[in-house]
């Protein structure tokens, strides 16, 4: 039992990295288990994980907005870019 507990114990630093990995990619079954065990007993990391999801959503929302926004080049920018053709 002790050995299992030791295996399951990860630090907050590791838990935070796994939280980011989960969002970027996916976790292996063991990683999922370790992270969930940790989040159950650690309020700080659980809060970080929720905040991290919120941050993901905010970045996605920003991305969707930017994708639809047409930015008009200033005359100055246009002139600068066009220099390459002269």
């Amino acid at each position: 039992m002790n050995r299992i507990m030791n295996l399951a114990m990860i630090s907050c630093k590791q838990a935070a990295l796994l939280t980011s990995k989960k969002s970027m990619d996916s976790l292996s079954s063991i990683e999922k288990w370790k992270l969930n065990m940790h989040l159950k007993v650690c309020t700080a990391c659980d809060g970080f994980a929720k905040q991290s999801e919120l941050l993901d959503q905010a970045i996605e929302t920003l991305g969707n907005q930017k994708k639809e926004t047409l930015i008009t080049l200033t005359d100055e920018q246009r002139a600068k870019i066009l220099k390459v053709l002269n």
Binding site: C12, Q14, C45, G47, F48, Q51, L54
Partner: peptide
């Protein structure tokens, strides 16, 4: 963010969240 034991130095959850 983390001390040498891998614990958070301070509460990671900010007010904005």
């Amino acid at each position: 963010n983390f001390n040498s034991d891998g614990h958070w130095n301070r509460n990671p959850v900010a007010a904005w969240a």
